[in-house]
Simulated assay, not measured.
Amino acid sequence: MTDLIRGLALLNVAELVSGLGGDPDALMRSHGVDPGAAGDYDTFLPYSSVAAVIGDAAQELDCPDFGMRLARRQGIQMLGPVAVIIRNAETVAAAIDGVSRCLHHLAPPDSTELIREPHAAIFTFSTNLRRLAHRDQMVEKGLGIAMDAFRLMLGESFVPLRVELQHRRIAPMASYREMFGCPIEFEREVNSIHLPPHSLNQSIRGRDAAALALAENYLAGLRPDLAVADHVRGMTQRLLVVNHADLVAVARAMSLHPRVLQRKLAESGTSFEEILDDVRRDMAWDLSATGIQISQIATMLGYSETSSYTRACRRWYGESPRQLRARRRGVPGSAHARPS
């Protein structure tokens, strides 16, 4: 996974840290970040370093809702040219589609998706770096910025049906109510904002079709190979949850023909099959630590037969699924190191 994000991710961090009594320059330098790069669109920074700056600020300054506070200060300004798409798309649904297609130009590990259901439209956000420290703060910042976008498109009084977060609660409930204004559920399957279905068709007032075309043309010319494999990995991981992680489904979600997607991946030195296998291996490692049934893990990885998962597990880790689960759960007599 490409561990990169544009310097815009740290827009207004210095002001917020200073306002809380901290030293923003020292904080950023302690994680190898040049303070001059904070807020700079043209600079790429290590995603893990940006997350460390935000997470450590939350801990050191006793501000558990730091990510959400930063989101309120940044708003969609943090999205650079992607914000132009939000302001000028024809409808809310078109704006979400534009963000999903172009977000990887700003933050390759991040991805969004729109899931349509009979009684809700579900906007999802994920950060796909493996074992990222302070993922919770980055997710809350990301969904906070999404709320700014929705209120821009749907009106300042917009309130979602509900918000779901994968992590446990890290801030006072009052902070979540202030940010989202709706019921919040923690430790859920995906990070998501649930919207009324009719909101997707709402037209965006004051849109400028020419500005939209300029922004899309600009983004289309930005290193298209920068994150195609990373984007496919994130999309595959999310589609596995609903058992639709095949080449055709991933290509459709990325608005590409399957052959075009395979060619782009080949140019990046990989293939869809390799990415799918890699995603399954990492998910098996994480799921085995939960103690859920082997058959459930096999299903969550998209295998129709448990025996297929068993063969894959032996190929990845040199042991059976039960042995892997025992080792991950710290059963006495099991090794704890992850095989290379």
Rank of each mutant, 00 (worst) to 15 (best):
G269C: 12
D225F: 02
V159F: 02
G144T: 04
L219Q: 04
G234Q: 11
L261Q: 05
L200K: 01
M153V: 01
L212W: 00
N243K: 14
E185V: 13
I193V: 15
S157K: 10
L212P: 00
R177S: 14
D246N: 14
T236W: 06
E178L: 09
E156Q: 13
A210H: 03
P196I: 08
P196H: 06
I204F: 01
H231Q: 15
A211K: 12
L195N: 03
S199T: 09
A229E: 07
D148I: 02
E189M: 12
L219V: 03
Q166M: 15
A220C: 05
I184P: 11
N217Y: 00
M173D: 13
E216P: 03
L154K: 02
A253G: 02
I193T: 10
R233S: 15
R207D: 00
A227F: 04
D208N: 15
E267Y: 08
P160Y: 10
H244A: 15
N201V: 04
H257F: 13
T236E: 10
I145W: 03
E187L: 12
H167S: 15
L165Y: 05
P160D: 09
Q166N: 10
H231V: 14
A149Y: 00
A210C: 05
A253T: 01
Q262S: 15
S255W: 10
E164W: 08
P196E: 09
P197K: 04
R168N: 14
R259I: 05
H231M: 14
L219W: 03
T270W: 10
T236R: 06
G142F: 09
E156Y: 04
A146V: 04
V190R: 13
R162T: 11
H231S: 11
A253C: 06
N243V: 08
C182F: 09
D208P: 03
S175I: 10
S199A: 15
A220E: 07
F158C: 09
S268K: 11
L143K: 03
V228P: 01
H194P: 01
D225R: 07
L226C: 02
V232F: 11
G155A: 08
P160S: 11
Y218V: 05
M235C: 12
M153T: 02
S271H: 05
N217P: 00
G181W: 02
R233Y: 15
V248Q: 14
S192W: 10
P160R: 09
P258E: 03
I204E: 00
G206Q: 08
A253H: 07
P196W: 07
I184F: 12
F158K: 03
P197L: 06
R233V: 08
E267G: 09
L154V: 07
E267I: 13
M153I: 00
S175W: 03
V248C: 06
L143Q: 04
L161N: 01
F272C: 08
G142T: 07
E267F: 08
R169F: 09
A245D: 08
H198L: 09
V163P: 01
L226R: 01
L195D: 07
V242T: 11
R162Y: 15
R207N: 08
M147V: 06
S157R: 08
